[in-house]
């Protein structure tokens, strides 16, 4: 990516008499200045409004999670601020024997950690091979992935469910089963990291190979240390995805409540169970899930931005 440019704050004036083009300091007239200010003010108004819209649901979520379950209600009510602030919902989630929340949380965390590690290894392997090694069948592989990507992912789920069932990897074995599903096909998501590897000069590999490195050593000693942003991006994406997955998780763990992930568990609270009783518990659960994941994301936001912008620009 080239240098970032700022539009310089100068006006350019063509001086017809002298026949030259001059750069002049912005000597703004009063009306121009006023116009500028009006534009900026309206932008600020829009941005503030947007910020409110963007944040409000999350603020509401937090408010409602603190509503007392015992003295008020656990359902949807026609007011926002709790009459009494309490930790009822959190207490129930974390301590009540009827709550599987901690279990779900643990399930999701385990899945996320395993997926983050394994998927990162696979994605980096594939993208490195496709970006920097040249071998027969390379184009073929990339075209195949392109075509396979046009099939809806869920289509494979039906087959995989029965396959996994054969090996006891559904319901009570849903967690290893899900890890396997997420990781097995993750090689197809090589696009963004390949785009990153493509930007590292080829001469580095060549130089290292002449210096005596095998391709494996080039990968390990030269390319990996230079790829910190994309490694972090890949780990971050792999780690976050399992937290939000409903489709696969609900299918593989179908009917086995202790083996849900948080998304399936909480979804069932609001949409399948009597949500009037579980709404504030859902809110509290949502807060408990969102806080660490969001914190992690915000901490690594820089790498995320690099990843998505690089990926989109590269195509």
């Amino acid at each position: 990516m080239s240098k970032k440019h700022e539009i310089p704050e100068v006006d350019i004036v063509v001086d017809h008499e002298a026949g030259v083009i001059r750069e002049v300091k912005p000597q703004q007239t009063r009306s121009k200045k006023g116009h500028e200010r009006r534009v900026n003010t309206s932008i600020y108004v829009i941005l503030v409004l947007m910020s409110i819209i963007w944040l409000a649901p999350f603020v509401f979520l937090v408010f409602q999670s603190f509503r007392s379950y015992l003295t008020e209600s656990g359902g949807m009510e026609a007011y926002l601020l709790p009459k009494t602030w309490s930790l009822d919902n959190y207490r129930w989630l974390l301590t009540d024997p009827n709550s599987h929340f901690l279990r779900w949380y643990g399930n999701t965390l385990i899945i996320a950690i395993f997926v983050a590690v394994l998927q990162t290894i696979i994605v980096l392997s594939v993208s490195y091979a496709l970006s920097r090694l040249r071998f027969r069948g390379r184009k073929l592989i990339m075209n195949m992935v392109l075509v396979l990507g046009l099939f809806p992912g869920f289509l494979t789920m039906i087959t995989l469910y029965f396959l996994l069932k054969q090996f006891g990897l559904t319901q009570s074995g849903a967690i290893p089963g899900l890890i396997l599903i997420y990781v097995a096909s993750s090689g197809m998501g090589y696009y963004i990291s390949k785009g990153f590897f493509d930007t590292i000069p080829k001469a580095l590999d060549e130089s290292a190979r002449i210096d005596g490195a095998t391709r494996f050593q080039v990968f390990l000693k030269i390319i990996m240390p230079l790829s910190k942003p994309i490694v972090i991006y890949t780990i971050l994406m792999a780690f976050m995805a399992p937290w939000g997955d409903y489709v696969f998780a609900s299918y593989v763990a179908f009917g086995s409540e202790p083996n849900y992930n948080v998304a399936v568990g909480l979804y069932r609270w609001v949409n399948v169970n009597d949500y009037q009783g579980y709404f504030t518990r859902f809110c509290a659960g949502g807060v408990l899930v969102a806080v660490p994941v969001t914190a992690l994301f915000m901490a690594l936001q820089k790498y995320y931005v690099e990843g998505v912008t690089g990926g989109a620009v590269k195509g």
Partner: peptide, 29 residues
């Protein structure tokens, strides 16, 4: 396998995964 054939090492497992968990199910469906 760590040098001229490094791509085989890198791609063996991912390809197997995609073959079993994507291609096979898609053909099946």
């Amino acid at each position: 396998l760590l040098d001229e054939q490094f791509h085989k090492t890198l791609l063996a497992l991912p390809t197997l995964g995609v073959a079993l968990f994507t291609i096979l199910p898609i053909i099946f469906m």
